[in-house]
């Protein structure tokens, strides 16, 4: 297999140029999908037989909750790459992912609370699912704060990488909390191995929203990484050329 492409992608200069070409496409496709998924889900999908219209927050809650966990796993992977291969770009990715993941996590908690009030009868309970997601938010905030507290870039990179990797044990706990313990939060509707427990006319807009949020995250991440790369490489010739030319 030809690894040249990946090696090139690891160099900030190449990444900057290639991501600049991808960004408009990613942004356009994610905007289109998000408009489709959310309009379809919020306006045209049928109401639920029990919850009526209040279930519609699922079209925001599920994508943000998925992303909150997925981004943390990506952060842990970036942390491992930073520690093992010392790829500079991996740390740029880790740094830029953390606030985005934290925002998704906060959104998932808030949308969940708004849904919980009419459905369960309460905004918040300390069950295993809700608590473990709150811990995830604290982990995100911890990674952001740790970077802010250390001045040296290389030391901060290592510390954040270790914290990201250690925190990843929380992800399976979040995923399986609804199976391992009695929780107020219901089990998973979308399962990899079984048919989803959702009517197809609700499922399609949900899947489109999830895909849209993933693409949106990728676009935001690239945007943030490009800024961070320019900042870190500001003394190099190629940055001077691109900005000064």
């Amino acid at each position: 297999m030809n690894w040249t492409f990946f090696h090139k992608l690891g160099s900030p200069k190449w990444f900057y140029d290639i991501s600049g070409r991808w960004l408009p496409w990613l942004a356009t496709i994610s905007a289109l999908l998000m408009a489709t998924g959310l309009t379809w889900g919020l306006l045209f999908a049928p109401p639920d037989y029990l919850q009526g219209n209040s279930y519609r927050i699922i079209f925001l809650h599920v994508p943000t909750a998925f992303l909150a966990s997925a981004v943390y796993v990506m952060m842990a992977c970036a942390g491992a790459v930073t520690l093992i291969w010392r790829v500079k770009l991996a740390d740029v990715a880790l740094k830029c992912m953390a606030p985005v993941g934290a925002s998704f996590c906060l959104l998932a908690l808030i949308t969940g609370a708004i849904w919980g009030k009419p459905t369960w009868g309460t905004w918040w309970v300390w069950d295993a699912r809700l608590t473990s997601v709150l811990i995830l938010l604290f982990l995100y905030i911890g990674v952001i704060a740790l970077r802010g507290a250390i001045r040296s870039t290389t030391t901060a990179a290592k510390a954040c990488a270790v914290l990201s990797i250690v925190g990843v044990v929380n992800i399976p706990i979040i995923k399986f909390s609804v199976q391992w313990w009695n929780t107020l939060h219901q089990g998973a509707t979308l399962k990899l191995t079984e048919k989803p427990a959702m009517a197809p006319e609700m499922l399609w807009p949900l899947l489109i929203s999830i895909l849209a949020f993933y693409l949106f995250f990728t676009a935001v991440l690239l945007l943030r990484m490009r800024t961070e790369i320019l900042n870190r490489e500001r003394r190099t010739q190629w940055v001077q050329q691109r900005l000064g030319g």
Partner: peptide, 16 residues
Amino acid sequence: ELLAKHDENYMPPEVQ
């Protein structure tokens, strides 16, 4: 104090 626990099934009223 009583809270409703919702299950993971979602469907339109007609299906029910």
